[in-house]
Structure formats: C-alpha cells, structure tokens
C-alpha cells in the first residue's frame, strides 16, 4: 500500500514552483512567472496556498522604488518536497 501523494504539491504549477525554489536561495515573483509560464493571478493563488501550508515564505520588499515579492522554500517545504519525490519513486518503483 503506497502512501498518498501530498495534494498540495500534486498540481502542475505548485510543483513547478517548488522545483524551482528547491534549487535556489530565493526567487522573485517575476522570475517564477517567467519560468513557469503562469499568469500573475494563478501564480499568486498558488504561492498563497504554499505559504499557508508553511512550505514557502513570502517576503514583500523593495528594489529601489519597485515592489518585489521574494519567495523562499522553508525546511518544512524541503521535507514535504523530498517526501513527495520519495512517494513518486515508490509508485514508479524507481
């Protein structure tokens, strides 16, 4: 019997965001949008869900006079991502 996949990560956009954040210190909103190809609205909703679960931390800062939204993965998010990949590997018998 396989454990269930984390439903929060089992969506294309949120999984893509977590896959990006797992490899960088932090990423800003525009970079995530460029990399995922998502609309600003969809990405905002996805990020809010991940932040609400404690998987990522969102910081609102400024670069000069421009507002900047920075996202970084939390230790809880890293663990959830690792577990998600482990379950996937179990499913696929890798």
């Amino acid at each position: 019997m396989f454990p269930e996949l984390d439903p929060l990560l089992h969506s294309e956009l949120r999984l893509a965001v977590m896959s990006i954040l797992i490899g960088v210190e932090s990423a800003d909103f525009s970079f995530l949008r460029e990399q995922t190809g998502a609309t600003a609205g969809n990405l905002s909703v996805g990020l809010e869900k991940l932040a609400a679960a404690g998987y990522i931390k969102i910081e609102k800062t400024f670069r000069g006079k421009m507002p900047r939204t920075l996202c970084r993965i939390t230790p809880q998010g890293t663990q959830a991502f690792q577990e998600y990949v482990d379950v996937l590997k179990g499913y696929l018998k890798i």
Partner: peptide, 26 residues
C-alpha cells in the same frame, strides 16, 4: 480547475523544471 498530474508526469516536470532553471542560471 487545477491540472492534476500522473506520477510519471510529476517526476518529468520536476526534472525538467530543475534542469531549465539550472540551464538559464548558467
């Protein structure tokens, strides 16, 4: 409606995203 992925699609997405990000940053 959120797009749900099969296990294989999920792994492919993770591998592709990590690789694309790395390629872009390098």
């Amino acid at each position: 409606m959120e797009k749900q992925l099969s296990s294989q699609q999920s792994l492919d997405l993770i591998a592709r995203t990590i690789s694309d990000t790395r390629t872009r940053l390098e």
